[in-house]
Design a binder for these strands. Structure first.
Lengths: 148, 148
DNA sequence: TATTGTTATACTCTATAACTATA
DNA sequence: TATAGTTATAGAGTATAACAATA
Protein backbone atom coordinates (compact mmCIF):
# COMPACT_ATOMS: atom_id res chain seq x y z
CA UNK A 1 0.00 0.00 0.00
CA UNK A 2 1.39 3.42 -0.97
CA UNK A 3 2.66 5.63 1.83
CA UNK A 4 -0.01 8.26 1.28
CA UNK A 5 -2.62 5.69 2.32
CA UNK A 6 -0.86 4.92 5.60
CA UNK A 7 -3.28 5.51 8.46
CA UNK A 8 -0.62 7.13 10.62
CA UNK A 9 0.21 9.60 7.85
CA UNK A 10 -3.43 10.38 7.15
CA UNK A 11 -4.08 10.83 10.87
CA UNK A 12 -1.16 13.21 11.27
CA UNK A 13 -2.24 15.18 8.20
CA UNK A 14 -5.87 15.38 9.33
CA UNK A 15 -4.89 16.30 12.87
CA UNK A 16 -2.67 19.09 11.61
CA UNK A 17 -5.49 20.46 9.49
CA UNK A 18 -7.96 20.42 12.33
CA UNK A 19 -5.53 22.00 14.79
CA UNK A 20 -4.67 24.79 12.34
CA UNK A 21 -8.33 25.42 11.58
CA UNK A 22 -9.24 25.46 15.27
CA UNK A 23 -6.36 27.77 16.16
CA UNK A 24 -7.55 30.15 13.45
CA UNK A 25 -11.09 30.01 14.83
CA UNK A 26 -9.89 30.69 18.38
CA UNK A 27 -7.52 33.53 17.51
CA UNK A 28 -10.25 36.15 17.99
CA UNK A 29 -10.64 35.01 21.58
CA UNK A 30 -6.89 35.11 22.17
CA UNK A 31 -6.69 31.36 22.62
CA UNK A 32 -4.86 28.48 21.06
CA UNK A 33 -6.24 24.98 21.02
CA UNK A 34 -4.17 23.71 23.95
CA UNK A 35 -5.19 26.52 26.25
CA UNK A 36 -8.76 26.11 25.02
CA UNK A 37 -8.75 22.41 25.90
CA UNK A 38 -7.80 23.19 29.51
CA UNK A 39 -10.39 25.96 29.75
CA UNK A 40 -13.07 23.65 28.36
CA UNK A 41 -12.33 20.88 30.85
CA UNK A 42 -12.40 23.15 33.89
CA UNK A 43 -15.63 24.75 32.68
CA UNK A 44 -17.20 21.31 32.43
CA UNK A 45 -16.09 20.33 35.93
CA UNK A 46 -18.26 20.94 38.99
CA UNK A 47 -15.52 21.60 41.57
CA UNK A 48 -12.54 22.25 39.34
CA UNK A 49 -9.92 19.91 37.99
CA UNK A 50 -6.52 19.20 39.50
CA UNK A 51 -3.59 19.81 37.20
CA UNK A 52 -2.70 16.17 37.48
CA UNK A 53 -6.12 15.13 36.19
CA UNK A 54 -5.88 17.67 33.38
CA UNK A 55 -2.51 16.23 32.39
CA UNK A 56 -3.90 12.71 32.34
CA UNK A 57 -7.04 13.49 30.35
CA UNK A 58 -5.14 15.60 27.81
CA UNK A 59 -2.16 13.23 27.65
CA UNK A 60 0.21 16.05 28.47
CA UNK A 61 3.15 16.21 30.84
CA UNK A 62 2.23 17.93 34.14
CA UNK A 63 4.84 20.58 33.41
CA UNK A 64 3.00 21.50 30.23
CA UNK A 65 -0.22 21.90 32.17
CA UNK A 66 1.53 24.34 34.49
CA UNK A 67 2.39 26.54 31.53
CA UNK A 68 -1.10 26.33 30.02
CA UNK A 69 -2.77 27.20 33.33
CA UNK A 70 -0.29 30.06 33.74
CA UNK A 71 -1.35 31.38 30.33
CA UNK A 72 -5.05 31.15 31.18
CA UNK A 73 -4.49 32.73 34.58
CA UNK A 74 -2.53 35.55 33.02
CA UNK A 75 -5.52 36.21 30.76
CA UNK A 76 -7.84 36.21 33.78
CA UNK A 77 -9.74 33.15 32.63
CA UNK A 78 -8.97 30.65 35.43
CA UNK A 79 -7.80 30.59 39.04
CA UNK A 80 -5.93 28.04 41.13
CA UNK A 81 -7.72 27.12 44.36
CA UNK A 82 -6.31 24.97 47.14
CA UNK A 83 -7.96 21.59 47.37
CA UNK A 84 -9.79 21.05 50.65
CA UNK A 85 -8.75 17.39 50.62
CA UNK A 86 -5.02 17.62 49.81
CA UNK A 87 -2.81 20.63 50.27
CA UNK A 88 -0.51 19.55 47.47
CA UNK A 89 -3.34 19.70 44.97
CA UNK A 90 -4.55 22.85 43.25
CA UNK A 91 -7.99 22.88 41.68
CA UNK A 92 -8.20 24.91 38.50
CA UNK A 93 -11.52 26.74 38.22
CA UNK A 94 -12.81 29.17 35.60
CA UNK A 95 -13.52 32.82 36.33
CA UNK A 96 -16.75 34.42 35.18
CA UNK A 97 -14.86 35.86 32.26
CA UNK A 98 -13.36 32.46 31.60
CA UNK A 99 -16.82 30.95 31.25
CA UNK A 100 -17.92 33.70 28.88
CA UNK A 101 -14.83 33.38 26.71
CA UNK A 102 -15.20 29.61 26.68
CA UNK A 103 -18.80 29.85 25.46
CA UNK A 104 -17.81 32.09 22.55
CA UNK A 105 -14.71 30.05 21.80
CA UNK A 106 -16.70 26.82 21.69
CA UNK A 107 -19.19 28.31 19.26
CA UNK A 108 -16.40 29.45 16.95
CA UNK A 109 -14.35 26.27 17.23
CA UNK A 110 -17.33 23.98 16.73
CA UNK A 111 -18.45 25.90 13.65
CA UNK A 112 -14.99 25.72 12.15
CA UNK A 113 -14.68 22.04 12.97
CA UNK A 114 -18.01 21.33 11.32
CA UNK A 115 -16.75 23.07 8.20
CA UNK A 116 -13.52 21.07 8.24
CA UNK A 117 -15.53 17.86 8.54
CA UNK A 118 -18.04 18.98 5.93
CA UNK A 119 -17.18 16.14 3.58
CA UNK A 120 -18.57 13.66 6.10
CA UNK A 121 -22.21 13.09 6.97
CA UNK A 122 -23.32 13.33 10.59
CA UNK A 123 -23.39 9.54 10.76
CA UNK A 124 -19.87 9.30 9.35
CA UNK A 125 -18.63 11.85 11.88
CA UNK A 126 -20.10 9.67 14.61
CA UNK A 127 -18.32 6.65 13.18
CA UNK A 128 -15.06 8.55 13.00
CA UNK A 129 -15.44 9.75 16.59
CA UNK A 130 -15.99 6.26 17.94
CA UNK A 131 -13.13 4.75 15.92
CA UNK A 132 -10.77 7.48 17.16
CA UNK A 133 -11.93 6.97 20.75
CA UNK A 134 -11.08 3.30 20.47
CA UNK A 135 -7.64 4.01 19.03
CA UNK A 136 -6.96 6.45 21.86
CA UNK A 137 -7.91 3.95 24.53
CA UNK A 138 -5.28 1.43 23.45
CA UNK A 139 -2.41 2.84 25.47
CA UNK A 140 -1.68 -0.46 27.17
CA UNK A 141 -2.60 -3.38 24.94
CA UNK A 142 -3.55 -6.48 27.02
CA UNK A 143 -0.68 -8.80 26.15
CA UNK A 144 1.76 -6.66 24.22
CA UNK A 145 4.52 -6.83 26.81
CA UNK A 146 6.98 -7.76 24.10
CA UNK A 147 7.57 -4.24 22.87
CA UNK A 148 7.81 -2.46 26.21
CA UNK B 1 -21.02 17.12 24.03
CA UNK B 2 -18.09 16.92 26.46
CA UNK B 3 -14.76 18.18 25.26
CA UNK B 4 -13.14 14.76 25.45
CA UNK B 5 -15.51 13.60 22.69
CA UNK B 6 -14.51 16.43 20.36
CA UNK B 7 -13.29 14.94 17.09
CA UNK B 8 -10.44 17.44 16.83
CA UNK B 9 -9.21 16.52 20.29
CA UNK B 10 -9.49 12.78 19.66
CA UNK B 11 -7.69 13.19 16.33
CA UNK B 12 -4.84 15.11 17.90
CA UNK B 13 -4.54 12.55 20.71
CA UNK B 14 -4.62 9.60 18.31
CA UNK B 15 -2.16 11.25 15.94
CA UNK B 16 0.25 11.91 18.79
CA UNK B 17 0.05 8.28 19.88
CA UNK B 18 0.71 6.97 16.39
CA UNK B 19 3.58 9.36 15.76
CA UNK B 20 5.25 8.46 19.05
CA UNK B 21 4.79 4.74 18.40
CA UNK B 22 6.14 5.06 14.86
CA UNK B 23 9.13 7.12 15.98
CA UNK B 24 9.92 4.42 18.54
CA UNK B 25 9.66 1.74 15.87
CA UNK B 26 11.94 3.70 13.51
CA UNK B 27 14.60 4.58 16.09
CA UNK B 28 16.60 1.42 15.34
CA UNK B 29 16.97 2.56 11.75
CA UNK B 30 18.02 6.05 12.83
CA UNK B 31 14.90 7.61 11.37
CA UNK B 32 12.03 9.73 12.60
CA UNK B 33 8.62 9.65 11.00
CA UNK B 34 9.06 12.83 8.95
CA UNK B 35 12.33 11.70 7.41
CA UNK B 36 10.78 8.28 6.87
CA UNK B 37 7.85 9.78 5.00
CA UNK B 38 10.20 11.48 2.53
CA UNK B 39 12.26 8.33 2.10
CA UNK B 40 9.11 6.29 1.48
CA UNK B 41 7.81 8.63 -1.18
CA UNK B 42 11.05 8.76 -3.12
CA UNK B 43 11.37 4.96 -2.93
CA UNK B 44 7.89 4.63 -4.43
CA UNK B 45 8.67 7.01 -7.26
CA UNK B 46 10.03 5.82 -10.59
CA UNK B 47 12.20 8.82 -11.49
CA UNK B 48 12.46 10.59 -8.13
CA UNK B 49 10.32 13.31 -6.63
CA UNK B 50 10.95 17.03 -6.76
CA UNK B 51 11.13 18.74 -3.40
CA UNK B 52 8.15 20.83 -4.39
CA UNK B 53 6.05 17.72 -4.99
CA UNK B 54 7.21 16.22 -1.70
CA UNK B 55 6.15 19.39 0.10
CA UNK B 56 2.74 19.31 -1.51
CA UNK B 57 2.02 15.64 -0.83
CA UNK B 58 3.22 15.85 2.77
CA UNK B 59 1.62 19.25 3.41
CA UNK B 60 4.94 20.69 4.50
CA UNK B 61 6.59 23.98 3.72
CA UNK B 62 9.29 23.60 1.02
CA UNK B 63 11.86 24.85 3.53
CA UNK B 64 11.05 21.93 5.81
CA UNK B 65 11.59 19.51 2.94
CA UNK B 66 15.05 20.98 2.39
CA UNK B 67 15.96 20.09 5.98
CA UNK B 68 14.48 16.59 5.77
CA UNK B 69 16.29 15.83 2.51
CA UNK B 70 19.48 17.22 4.05
CA UNK B 71 19.08 14.78 6.95
CA UNK B 72 18.51 11.81 4.63
CA UNK B 73 21.40 12.85 2.42
CA UNK B 74 23.65 13.16 5.45
CA UNK B 75 22.76 9.58 6.34
CA UNK B 76 23.54 8.44 2.80
CA UNK B 77 19.97 7.42 2.06
CA UNK B 78 19.06 9.80 -0.77
CA UNK B 79 20.69 11.97 -3.43
CA UNK B 80 19.64 15.13 -5.23
CA UNK B 81 19.77 14.82 -9.01
CA UNK B 82 19.26 17.63 -11.48
CA UNK B 83 16.00 17.36 -13.39
CA UNK B 84 16.50 16.89 -17.13
CA UNK B 85 13.40 19.00 -17.79
CA UNK B 86 13.94 22.00 -15.49
CA UNK B 87 17.25 23.17 -14.10
CA UNK B 88 15.57 24.72 -11.06
CA UNK B 89 14.20 21.36 -10.01
CA UNK B 90 16.09 18.71 -8.07
CA UNK B 91 14.84 15.17 -8.11
CA UNK B 92 15.31 13.33 -4.85
CA UNK B 93 16.20 9.66 -5.41
CA UNK B 94 17.06 6.92 -2.95
CA UNK B 95 20.49 5.29 -2.76
CA UNK B 96 20.82 1.52 -2.62
CA UNK B 97 21.28 1.81 1.12
CA UNK B 98 18.25 4.08 1.27
CA UNK B 99 16.10 1.40 -0.31
CA UNK B 100 17.36 -1.24 2.09
CA UNK B 101 16.80 0.97 5.14
CA UNK B 102 13.37 1.88 3.87
CA UNK B 103 12.37 -1.79 3.51
CA UNK B 104 13.36 -2.58 7.09
CA UNK B 105 11.83 0.64 8.40
CA UNK B 106 8.53 -0.08 6.69
CA UNK B 107 8.38 -3.55 8.20
CA UNK B 108 9.00 -2.16 11.68
CA UNK B 109 6.67 0.81 11.33
CA UNK B 110 3.85 -1.24 9.85
CA UNK B 111 4.07 -3.83 12.62
CA UNK B 112 3.98 -1.15 15.28
CA UNK B 113 1.09 0.63 13.59
CA UNK B 114 -0.87 -2.62 13.42
CA UNK B 115 -0.34 -3.03 17.16
CA UNK B 116 -1.47 0.53 17.84
CA UNK B 117 -4.60 -0.09 15.79
CA UNK B 118 -5.17 -3.50 17.34
CA UNK B 119 -8.48 -2.50 18.85
CA UNK B 120 -9.93 -2.14 15.37
CA UNK B 121 -10.80 -4.94 12.96
CA UNK B 122 -9.31 -4.90 9.47
CA UNK B 123 -12.63 -3.65 8.14
CA UNK B 124 -12.74 -0.86 10.72
CA UNK B 125 -9.20 0.16 9.82
CA UNK B 126 -10.31 0.41 6.22
CA UNK B 127 -13.25 2.57 7.24
CA UNK B 128 -10.98 4.79 9.31
CA UNK B 129 -8.54 5.15 6.43
CA UNK B 130 -11.21 6.23 3.99
CA UNK B 131 -12.82 8.66 6.43
CA UNK B 132 -9.43 10.24 7.15
CA UNK B 133 -8.65 10.48 3.45
CA UNK B 134 -11.88 12.39 2.90
CA UNK B 135 -11.14 14.77 5.77
CA UNK B 136 -7.68 15.41 4.35
CA UNK B 137 -9.01 16.22 0.92
CA UNK B 138 -11.12 19.14 2.12
CA UNK B 139 -8.39 21.75 1.99
CA UNK B 140 -10.40 24.09 -0.22
CA UNK B 141 -14.13 23.84 0.46
CA UNK B 142 -16.15 24.76 -2.69
CA UNK B 143 -17.52 28.13 -1.64
CA UNK B 144 -15.85 28.94 1.64
CA UNK B 145 -14.07 32.06 0.40
CA UNK B 146 -15.41 33.97 3.37
CA UNK B 147 -12.78 32.76 5.81
CA UNK B 148 -9.71 33.12 3.64
C1' DT C 1 6.73 37.80 -13.34
C1' DA C 2 6.40 33.35 -11.25
C1' DT C 3 8.51 29.13 -9.44
C1' DT C 4 12.22 25.96 -7.11
C1' DG C 5 15.14 25.51 -3.76
C1' DT C 6 17.48 27.66 0.05
C1' DT C 7 18.71 30.30 4.37
C1' DA C 8 17.32 32.53 8.45
C1' DT C 9 14.41 33.36 12.35
C1' DA C 10 10.93 32.93 15.75
C1' DC C 11 7.51 30.52 17.94
C1' DT C 12 5.03 26.31 19.53
C1' DC C 13 5.08 21.68 20.96
C1' DT C 14 7.29 17.66 23.10
C1' DA C 15 10.32 15.22 26.22
C1' DT C 16 13.28 14.89 30.52
C1' DA C 17 15.30 15.82 34.69
C1' DA C 18 15.44 17.82 39.02
C1' DC C 19 13.48 20.31 42.79
C1' DT C 20 9.64 21.69 46.79
C1' DA C 21 5.99 20.78 49.56
C1' DT C 22 3.12 17.82 50.96
C1' DA C 23 1.15 12.90 51.78
C1' DT D 1 8.70 6.55 49.87
C1' DA D 2 5.45 8.44 46.64
C1' DT D 3 2.70 12.22 44.59
C1' DA D 4 1.28 17.26 42.92
C1' DG D 5 3.07 21.01 41.27
C1' DT D 6 6.97 23.66 39.51
C1' DT D 7 11.27 25.19 37.04
C1' DA D 8 14.64 24.61 33.58
C1' DT D 9 16.41 23.01 29.26
C1' DA D 10 16.88 20.92 24.87
C1' DG D 11 15.10 19.10 20.78
C1' DA D 12 11.48 18.63 17.27
C1' DG D 13 7.80 20.66 14.65
C1' DT D 14 5.51 24.82 12.50
C1' DA D 15 5.16 29.32 10.29
C1' DT D 16 7.11 33.41 7.66
C1' DA D 17 10.00 36.18 5.13
C1' DA D 18 13.50 36.95 1.99
C1' DC D 19 16.88 35.64 -1.50
C1' DA D 20 19.36 33.37 -5.85
C1' DA D 21 18.81 30.77 -9.91
C1' DT D 22 15.88 29.64 -13.45
C1' DA D 23 11.59 29.54 -16.09
Amino acid sequence: MPFVDNIGFLMSRASGQLVRATNAALADEGLRVRQYSVLSLVCESAEGESQRDLAEVLALDPSQVVALVDDLHGAGLVERRPSPADRRTKLVVPTERGRAVRARATARADARLAASLGALTEAEQGTLRSLLARVVDVELPPRAFTDR
